[in-house]
Amino acid sequence: MHEAGIAAEILEIAQAQSALLGGARVAEVTVRVGDMSGVAPEALEFAFEALREGEASGAVLVIKRIAVLARCETCGTDSRPGADLVLWCAVCGKPLKVLEGEELMVESIELEGDAE
């Protein structure tokens, strides 16, 4: 599985933010993981905890899971396909465009440093 690689990228993004603020401690990293992103949240948490070091050695990973949201560009109907993942419009029978649920984003990073 590629969750270790994904966790390493997340930590690198967090370290870069920390460096911008003079090596502030990374307290928390919030990521958005789509249900259709191909990433398993449990495996990602495990890899993140195993790989964190330096300024991020105490960082907590917060995972926001994003359900699939799709829109029919023909009739404008939005829908949340269930576990059966039928990506066709139930109203007009046209293919749906996926708006949410495929993302893999670092949303925000909480940093802690010595107050001046």
Binding site: E28, V106, E110, L111
Partner: peptide, 11 residues
Amino acid sequence: MSGRVAVETPV
């Protein structure tokens, strides 16, 4: 300094 930074960066 402390605080939350919105990064919105693809992993």
